[in-house]
Write a protein that binds this DNA or RNA. Structure first.
Lengths: 142, 142
DNA sequence: ATTTAACATATAATGATTCTAAACTTGAAG
DNA sequence: CTTCAAGTTTAGAATCATTATATGTTAAAT
């Protein structure tokens, strides 16, 4: 399989030994058309669902997700207490967050442009800008 | 004391009985010139530091912070894994986040203007926009 | 094939937050 | 100004996500 090989070398290139577990997780996460948002809890459930052919320990999932993040293959997103989302889209971009369904949607960087801009404090420079647009069902009273 | 009275009625108005603990916490949080960013851990330490005249149980601090948030006196901000910040500035506004010192600074709403804007998904409307500008020390290599 | 550092694993440990059940306050009614 | 019920506070237990440990396993260099 070509795809598996590609993943193996992708891992190797970033200093990660392509173990069975890592390749399986990489396949699951990166062989997709759309970007994928998930929590470790999600991922663990999806991978270790009943009747799945291969199980991966929770600790390994944590290790792997962090290794992938460190290697730049995942981005971490903070939106909700106790929920740490990861994103397979590692480019600089923004998000819609649907509080009703707990769902994240990507907004590509070029869809948002800032007109006005604050000056960062002295001695500091801007590293990254993150916009989260919280959305609600229509006709909602607040 | 006028300030204490004001706080008591502020609490009463939002359906919270002005108990000793709540008034003390409200004083600590709201009788300030600048807005205040904190975690529950912070707040607990500040309130229950050695030699302080009055101690408040951790559970009460959690209860109270959540009650204040529900009543609209505090805003919750998500920026970092395992760190849930609260903000005494409840108006819609944005933040600088200094990853080096773990520090938040308010950016008033009118300092940022969006030029371009994505359309929200069907059936959804925008509730709130949150911009987090991550800052770094100058001359940092990434 | 052998070797060894890197890795995966189950389980224990940690740390933040929430729950629980009992004791104490508050404010309202008698 | 006592009494009382509902609302609060509290210490400690329980829970949940995450991280550490220490033991066995594997990838890949020799």
């Amino acid at each position: 399989m070509d795809k598996k090989k590609d993943l193996a070398s992708k891992l190797r290139t970033s200093g990660l030994r392509p173990t069975k577990q890592r390749v399986l997780l990489a396949e699951f996460l990166f062989n997709r058309d759309k970007t994928f948002h998930f929590t470790v809890e999600n991922l663990n459930k999806a991978i270790n669902k009943k009747n799945s052919d291969y199980k991966i320990a929770l600790a390994t999932i944590y290790n792997t997700v962090h290794a992938f993040k460190k290697a730049g293959h995942l981005k971490e997103i903070f939106i909700k207490e106790g929920k740490n989302y990861f994103d397979t889209n590692t480019s600089s971009h923004h998000h819609f967050y649907d509080e009703v369904n707990n769902e994240l949607t990507d907004i590509e960087n070029n869809k948002i442009e800032l007109k006005k801009f604050p000056t960062p404090p002295k001695g500091k420079s801007i590293k990254d800008v993150n916009v989260i647009i919280n959305i609600d069902n229509d006709n909602q009273k607040h």
